[in-house]
């Protein structure tokens, strides 16, 4: 375990000394739904450091999607502060937010959101187009990003010629291409079967090992428990922020049953189903 931590110096105790990438302080988001005001986010504070692998979980209506939109600079909070790499963002214009999204955030979506009838290389070049990267350099960068997801041999394939897992890897290459500060994934395995889902999570594991800051928003506890840190939301508040302390496992080891490697985290199996609510279950009401 310590060997794994020490390999790149970004895991374990070293996180505390790392540079904060995301600093959210007292963030509130209120949606006016007719007469009633809905506190989608209620005074949330959260700091994520460079190299962390964080899962944000919660049922629908818990505020996790709203938090993801805030982190992803797709929306402005009603109050509070959000700094990404030290840049305060809560007062930015739409245009400035677009530039920050382009530079700092790589999005991965549940349903891939690839452009139809466009080959993989051009998909990956898309963020570079809006960054104004010159054509030749963009082609080179897209090639490198596709190599990172091991799809360099599929650069000329269009989405309908790729499997679901391959499509999601193209989307991950697109998220990585402009060297963002964080990779923000929204239910990245939600549209995939468990095998290809494991492939994608394996890729996340590799990226984490390479020092990428990863935030995965999910309702799936199996997915969440592959992260190093689990932030649980309920009713717009963070109800737990759990640093598992266990070594982040490669999904292959999960499949093999690497439970013995986990020292102080929850164990895979029925114990999780009891300890954490699943999507659609309003466990907290009766709790």
């Amino acid at each position: 375990m310590m060997n794994t931590n020490g390999r790149n110096g970004r895991n374990g105790q070293t996180i505390e000394q790392s540079i904060p990438v995301i600093e959210i302080a007292n963030m509130t988001k209120i949606y006016q739904m007719g007469e009633t005001a809905v506190h989608a986010l209620n005074d949330i504070s959260l700091t994520i450091n460079e190299g962390e692998y964080v899962a944000i979980i919660g049922t629908s209506g818990s505020g996790k999607s709203t938090l993801m939109n805030m982190i992803g600079l797709l929306d402005n909070p009603t109050s509070g502060s959000y700094r990404i790499r030290g840049t305060e963002t809560s007062e930015l214009s739409q245009s400035q937010m677009a530039d920050l999204r382009n530079k700092e955030i790589g999005f991965v979506f549940q349903r891939f959101n690839l452009l139809p009838r466009t080959n993989a290389r051009r998909q990956v070049e898309l963020p570079l187009f809006y960054a104004g990267t010159p054509g030749g350099k963009a082609v080179q960068m897209a090639r490198e990003a596709l190599a990172k997801v091991k799809l360099d041999d599929r650069a000329d394939h269009r989405p309908d010629e790729l499997s679901g897992g391959q499509q999601q890897r193209v989307a991950i290459a697109r998220a990585l291409v402009n060297n963002p500060s964080i990779l923000l994934a929204d239910e990245p395995t939600g549209a995939l079967d468990s095998k290809t889902g494991d492939e994608v999570m394996g890729l996340f594991y590799d990226l984490h090992q390479q020092g990428m800051t990863l935030i995965v928003v999910t309702h799936d506890n199996d997915i969440a428990r592959q992260a190093k840190r689990i932030v649980t939301l309920r009713d717009g508040k963070i109800i737990s922020d759990e640093r598992n302390g266990h070594t982040v496992l490669h999904p292959a080891e999960w499949a093999r049953g690497g439970d013995e490697l986990v020292t102080n985290g929850p164990v895979k199996g029925e114990a999780i189903a009891i300890s954490l609510p699943k999507e659609g279950e309003r466990v907290y009401e009766s709790a």
């Binding site: 677009a98 999204r101 959101n113």
Partner: peptide
């Protein structure tokens, strides 16, 4: 939506 997410301005 995707284009906006990856950094497209309204313009």
């Amino acid at each position: 939506g995707l284009r906006k997410a990856v950094g497209a301005h309204n313009s």
